[in-house]
Design a protein around this nucleic acid. Sequence first.
DNA 1: ATAAACACTTAACATAAGATAAATAATCAC
DNA 2: GTGATTATTTATCTTATGTTAAGTGTTTAT
Lengths: 195, 195
Amino acid sequence: MKPDTTVELTSLFEYFKKFNPLSLEAEHAIASISKAIDVKKNTVLQPIGHTCKTIYFIKKGLARIYYFKDGVDITESFAFENNSVARVESLFTGVASKKAIQLIENSELVAINATQLFKLYDTYPQIERLFRLIVESAYVETIHRIESIQFHTAEERYKILIKEAPDVLKRVPLKYIASYLGITQVSLSRIRGLK
Amino acid sequence: MKPDTTVELTSLFEYFKKFNPLSLEAEHAIASISKAIDVKKNTVLQPIGHTCKTIYFIKKGLARIYYFKDGVDITESFAFENNSVARVESLFTGVASKKAIQLIENSELVAINATQLFKLYDTYPQIERLFRLIVESAYVETIHRIESIQFHTAEERYKILIKEAPDVLKRVPLKYIASYLGITQVSLSRIRGLK
DNA sequence: ATAAACACTTAACATAAGATAAATAATCAC
DNA sequence: GTGATTATTTATCTTATGTTAAGTGTTTAT
């Protein structure tokens, strides 16, 4: 019988396979620096002001990255199941993050120790390649996000969001969606009220 | 005496050194898939609608990535000397780019064949690592750009720009700066007129 | 040197989104 | 279940930015 971790990490390795399938040995190496955790709704994983040293994979549930701008809670991004989430601007620079990760639902996560992960890059080029591809993919998404923020009206952005991620509306409080779209909750209500 | 290419690529390899120093062999491998080109002001390097297969390094000069939104010319980003520029959202996906790269000044570039570069990744893990680090760095910049666009007023964004890149103002037409800031040229003039 | 094209500013008006406040509606703790 | 939070909507007024148009200044090509 397989050890527990392997079973728990099945969906993580499925996720990896979409980018770069790993050898069993490489999978075990990642398993050895990862642990599965259950987190209650509204939990904040790491406080603002700490350097990000963990990459989370969401087996089940829903998270957001947020921060405070002039005392106002701003949602930078959402992350759904079968995706990873990390405070990248801290992870890749070592600078303390001004952001936090919060779970919007009761969630099941895999926490990967990034410090140890980066060390695995030397031994397993396939792991370095895997995360290179994951980052490239996230980078492309971020570029699309810029186009969306900069060159669509708030109403267009709202319509695009509910078209591309109708789930969001059911699972995420509107106040979080509003700041994600770059507007106030009042404006979002107004837009929703149209027609 | 060194071959010509080595001399011409000095600044490129200096740029690489900031991320991941390469062996001479790896440098030669990159040199063999690169060529130095001189480009006149206003030249568009590749037409919109083609898949991006080239990474450019700017030895001298200044470029912008732009596209058309509802017929209006929008500048997505600028790239100055000693930096690289590519239409990443096409490069990493194979999808035809809706964007073009244009030189704002007479420029000296190094064109790196990306298709061949990606093949080098198998032979030279150090090259794969180099570009992983370059992309991670660009990704972090893009995340900061989102914060800037989404949560500062146009006036704040303008002030940040002239503080962080005062060069831009001297070398880039205001119409390009305006769309980069996400506003019209008229709005930018108005902001500049204040005080 | 001149005309044409381009770059930038200014003005008047229209509109989308912000700020504040108050009213419902939904959820949570006990 | 009841009261207390929290979430959402609605209304009013203000403000920043868009749109259009016209005018001035600056390059560029011949």
